[in-house]
Amino acid sequence: MALCFLARTVYSDIRHNFLPHYLLAAAIVVITPLFFSVSELDSRQAAQPLEMIISLTGTVLLTPVFMPEQNESIRDLIRSKKAPYLLTCMIRLLIGLLLLAVLTGISVLYMKKCHSQVTFRHFTGTAASAMALGSIGFFTAGVSNNVIIGYMASLLCYILNFIARDKLGIFCIFSMMNGSYDEKKWIFVLSFALILSVFMYFKLIRKY
C-alpha cells in the first residue's frame, strides 16, 4: 500500500510538475562538456566545472519542491487528501536529492573517463555545493510560499560566491577550486539544517 502510494506520487509529480526541472538539470550536465573542457584536468581545474556549473543542478532540482501548491486551489485539494502533505514534499525532496547525486556522479565519472584527476571527494564536494544551493532555494521558497523567491535566494548565493568567494569563509561553495575541502562539511550541515527547519516550520507554525 505504502509502495503503491509512493509510486503514484512519483509518477504524478514527474508527469505534471517536475519533468521540466529534471530535464533542465540533465541538460546542465549534458551541455557542460560542450562548453568547458573536462579532459585531462588536475584536481583544482576539475573542481571548476563541477562547482561552478554542475552545482546549479541543486537550484533546479530542490527549489521547486513546493511549487505545485503555490496555486491555492491545488494546495487545498492536496491538503484534503488522506496522504500527509509533508510526506509528499519529502518524497519529492528525496527524488531531487537522488537525481542530484546521480547527475553529479555521472559528471564525475565522465571526467574520470576523460582522464581528469577526480576522486570521491569531488563527488561529495560537488553534491554538497549543489545541496547548499538547492536547500537555500528550498528553504526560502517554503517559508515565503513563493518559488521565485526561492530561485532568487539560491542564485544570489551563487552570484555572491562567484564574485566574492574568498570572503565567505566556511560558507564558500566553490572551495575545491581553491584546493580546500574543509568548507564542505559546514555547508552540508547548513543544508541539512535548512531542510529540517522548513519541515519544522510547516509542522509547528503552519500546522500542516
Binding site: 503555490q70 496555486n71 491555492e72 513563493n146 521565485i148 523567491i149 530561485y151 542564485l155 552570484i159
Partner: peptide, 23 residues
C-alpha cells in the same frame, strides 16, 4: 552593474506573476 544585470528579473517576474497567483 554585476548584480543589476540579473536580479531585477526576479522582481519583475514576481510582479508579473503576482496577478496570476492572486487570481
Amino acid at each position: 552593474g554585476i548584480i543589476l544585470a540579473v536580479i531585477p528579473v526576479f522582481v519583475a517576474a514576481a510582479l508579473v506573476t503576482a496577478d496570476k497567483r492572486t487570481k
